[in-house]
Design a protein around this nucleic acid. Structure first.
Lengths: 237, 237
DNA sequence: TCCACACTCCCCCAAAATAGCGAGGTGGCC
DNA sequence: GGCCACCTCGCTATTTTGGGGGAGTGTGGA
């Protein structure tokens, strides 16, 4: 990895504010000599954050027109797993063609590579490099830099997660072994009677476990408790 | 990146069968001179696949004892986002201590680095490198190789996703927007009446959504449906 | 154009979960 | 020895879900 890129990664690793993320994207843009670098991120509460080199006009326009629901990059990456070249996306519909044209008019590149990453609680981030150039030039750019970009995207996410954790704080309640078993059977779709039979205890006892878990998790009902236990990674189905 | 590692990555990229994945893990083990390389993967239907260099005895033991629910690596990575050194995990409980001891006895290393990756439909994969060595040796190994391992993990996932798409023909159930909203409210602990009020529809209509979601997800009851929707990343609470 | 599918509403009744009141035994920790 | 967390079991009454029927609208794709 290039020394100046290492330096940029360090700046991401030590980023504290959104401005720091912003500065990092500008540094990366200059390093790679591309039109834009953008990092876009949805935390577990569904709040969106963004840092990047797009013009303010484009960002405003994007928000105003609710292009999140149109942008094939967003729609495409939401169903994908791995780095996506914009060319692979579906630009065939009328709305997406119009969107692309307008994006280019606002200075967004005609080429792009977007790397989606997901977190355990529904966090979803997109790291994008975009440029205006021919297909051949872009392909060779990707060949040279795709791996580094994946690593950079990881660094952004790592820091973004810490940023999120800094904002939130919640106590994780521990469930007892029997409570965990009971919750697991319930999460698998068993009725209380079935789960009790599985655990070889009375249905009443099972109920006590479920209620204990519900209270510990601050849940309103069994379904809520299961949802919370799954979200917190306490149980696996 | 080392030429011989490039070769191993190519072999991952062209993997077709589980045996190919297996062979790739063995190659990586030899390349890095570590005790084990393991790739473990849960697809969007909750089916588990694995390829790695652990002994068959350990794998059997692991399955038999249902260690998925004990293993701090699994439990820890489920709540995390980024490469996890096994030392960072919680080994303080009695069961996890016993598990660790047994794992070491079966030849699993005392050190490990696990890289979790998630897909859009709740796919969840773990790529692990493990070795028996001192903390210092392991730290320097991580420093040298962590980035490469992240890229290797990405390659495994990319191929695993293609493998999944090739093997499965059963449609991944997509829930309609209203079904997703309904499921989300239910997952947040609301009763049908409350959720219906939130969505400003009759309780009966809400019930239709919940039942449709239940059928699409192949769930036995509402709680099960919520659990599946969460596991597959369809909803977030 | 028509079909499929999402969306909306209504009935009834059996089954299951929830809420409230209990009881007692074990084992670890201060 | 006392406290606390965990594990186990019982009862009754009320609320919520689940399964079985229906029926009508609107919208987007073949």
């Amino acid at each position: 990895m290039h020394p100046s890129l290492e330096k940029l990664i360090s700046s991401v690793q030590s980023a504290v504010t959104l401005e720091d993320f912003q500065t990092a994207t500008e540094g990366l843009r200059d390093h790679y000599k591309v039109a834009h670098i953008v990092y876009h991120w949805v935390n577990s509460n569904g709040e969106r954050f963004g840092a990047g080199t797009y013009s303010q006009e484009w960002v405003d326009r994007y928000v105003e027109k609710d292009y999140l629901r149109v942008d094939p990059v967003i729609l495409g990456c939401f169903q994908r797993f791995h780095p996506v070249d914009w060319k692979q996306l579906d630009w065939s519909t009328k709305t997406s063609k119009a969107f692309f044209k307008e994006a280019v008019r606002y200075g967004v590149g005609n080429q792009g590579l977007t790397i989606p990453i997901r977190g355990p609680q529904g966090q979803f981030a997109l790291f994008t490099a975009s440029n205006t150039c021919s297909d051949d030039v872009w392909t060779s750019f990707r060949k040279r830099n795709e791996r580094d970009l994946i690593l950079v995207a990881h660094e952004f996410n790592k820091r973004a997660l810490e940023y999120e954790l800094g904002v939130e704080s919640d106590t994780v309640a521990g469930l007892s072994p029997r409570e965990l078993s009971a919750m697991t059977y319930i999460a698998k779709g068993m009725s209380r009677a079935q789960a009790a039979a599985q655990m070889d205890i009375s249905e009443h006892t099972l109920r006590v476990y479920i209620e204990a878990a519900r209270h510990k998790l601050g849940a309103l009902n069994t379904t809520h408790a299961v949802a919370r236990a799954l979200s917190r990674g306490l149980i696996v189905i």
